[in-house]
Design a protein around this nucleic acid. Structure first.
Length: 196
DNA sequence: AAGAAGATTCGCT
DNA sequence: GCGAATCTTCTTA
């Protein structure tokens, strides 16, 4: 599948969030390849009180300040990793959280990593997809556009209608619409009322 | 140096 | 649907 070049990625955070729906995340592991279609994203924009970058750059969020197309991976709730794609130009802290994938290749491998055989539960949710893909802190800061084992690709296939909603799991500032998903896709996370 | 909160998941009711 | 688990990071004293 054709790899995405950085010049093809929108630099704007919301534009990138929409653009990534229908694109593919690939990870080549020693055990084999896993890949999945991105079906749900969330934008963490500049001056966003809910963004990890809101209070400036720290050791943890440094990757959010890289130019668009780099991985920002963080550990949350003592159990889960979450994978983001950095957005905006270098020096601006913003990113797009990948919230759900539709499994494509390496399903048996994902089933093993996730310790479940329920296809629908393999990559539905940010922590789950990171576990299925073997994504961890060693991937933080990596360039997703340079052909490394972990990378973004374009299937060249049409994407379904895109739905929008408030972000999930955010306790403050709920009025902004910054979550995007492919409508009628069973691998999208979140409560049903947000997925219409 | 200590404490609180968190972009979640899982299991149980 | 609800609450616990679990630990890293940042903030405050």
């Amino acid at each position: 599948m054709r790899r995405l070049r950085r010049s093809e990625l929108p630099i704007d955070t919301v534009a990138l969030s929409r653009f990534l729906i229908g694109r593919v995340l690939i990870h080549d592991l020693p055990e084999g390849r896993v890949s999945g279609r991105i079906v749900e994203t969330e934008a963490y924009v500049r001056d966003d009180p809910s963004s990890h970058a809101y209070r400036g750059r720290t050791t943890r969020n440094a990757s959010m300040f890289l130019t668009h197309g780099h991985a920002y991976v963080y550990f949350i709730y003592g159990a889960s990793y979450c994978c983001n794609v950095s957005s905006e130009e270098a020096g601006v802290g913003a990113a797009v959280l990948i919230r759900a994938l539709e499994p494509l290749e390496g399903i048996a491998l994902m089933e093993r990593r996730r310790a479940t055989r329920r296809l629908r539960d393999l990559t539905r949710g940010p922590g789950r997809l990171a576990q299925a893909f073997g994504i961890g802190r060693e991937h933080d800061g990596l360039d997703l556009c340079c052909g490394a084992p972990l990378r973004l690709a374009d299937p060249g296939a049409p994407t379904g209608a895109i739905g929008e909603s408030a972000r999930i799991g955010i306790t403050r500032e709920t009025e902004r619409i910054l979550r995007f998903y492919e409508r009628n896709n069973p691998y999208v996370s979140g409560p049903k009322r947000l997925n219409g």
